[in-house]
């Protein structure tokens, strides 16, 4: 009996070490079946209850569908079974399992001398919901863009007019709001002309108007790398009347945005 007692003591120490290292595997220590009766004819092994050295899962917490590796070592068993469809296994081994929900695996080691069980729980963590980007409705940035007002220019001129300074700073503030809240937005400044100059010269002039508007906005703190310029010359008029009012409407820097 000395030998057996030593064996049990070793198992307890092993479990204690395992338990100290890993909190999870819970081994039901000690014989759960009645001690087999002594029989002089029976082989030594079969008369001794099996010993589960360890039964671990690594990792013990997974996300659904990920693997966890079960490892075990058993001595003195004639039959080693792990539940949850793992089935009969060899005394020493490892097996990957892919539980989709938290599962407690129980290893049962049996011999003629009795049976031992040990359990380990693999916790299937629910993945945290993905971080939702701040909900932005298109309406919102489009509304902001719609607040941007055209700047207007004198004939054959590209400098921002004195009377447009208030519009310019209002536009600068709106643009800053847009760029802070919607980092993916790039705003295009379109330069346009009235119908009187030549189409060719007006391409150059529209370019100057867009570029002068951009420079003025940058000087008010709007980030220049978010501003593109394009000239349409007189190719995209707002109105086609031959009146000074219509000409002024067409001589404009207009804002357009894309995500």
């Amino acid at each position: 009996m000395m030998k057996r007692n030593v064996g049990i003591a070793l198992a307890v120490i092993a479990l204690a070490i395992t338990g100290a290292c890993k909190s999870k595997p819970k081994v039901t220590a000690g014989p759960t079946a009645p001690l087999p009766q002594q029989s002089g004819n029976a082989p030594q092994a079969s008369s001794t209850a099996p010993v589960i050295s360890f039964f671990t899962a690594e990792p013990t917490t997974i996300e659904s569908g990920q693997p966890s590796s079960l490892r075990w070592a058993v001595t003195g068993a004639t039959n080693v079974v792990i539940d949850h469809s793992v089935g009969q296994v060899s005394p020493n081994g490892r097996r990957a399992v892919y539980p989709t929900e938290t599962t407690t695996y129980t290893l049962t080691a049996a011999s003629a001398g009795g049976q031992q069980t040990a359990s380990v729980t693999v916790t299937v963590a629910t993945p945290p919901p993905p971080v939702q980007p701040p909900v932005v409705s298109k309406q919102t940035w489009q509304e902001l863009i719609a607040q941007l007002q055209d700047l207007h220019f004198e004939y054959d001129k590209s400098d921002v007019r004195q009377e447009d300074q208030a519009t310019l700073s209002a536009d600068a503030n709106t643009l800053k709001t847009i760029f802070v809240n919607f980092p993916n937005i790039v705003v295009t400044i379109e330069g346009h002309c009235d119908e009187r100059g030549s189409a060719e010269y007006n391409i150059g002039l529209g370019d100057r108007r867009a570029s002068a508007t951009k420079d003025a906005l940058i000087s008010l703190g709007v980030p220049g790398d978010k501003l593109k310029t394009v000239s349409f010359g007189k190719e995209r008029p707002l109105c086609t009347d031959a009146t000074e009012d219509c000409y002024l409407q067409n001589r404009r820097a207009h804002f357009n945005a894309a995500q």
Binding site: E200, I203, G204, D207, A210, S211, T229, V230, S231
Partner: peptide, 11 residues
């Protein structure tokens, strides 16, 4: 035709 990196290339 290689266009220069510029706001306009024309005429």
């Amino acid at each position: 035709f290689y266009n220069q990196q510029a706001s306009m290339n024309a005429f």
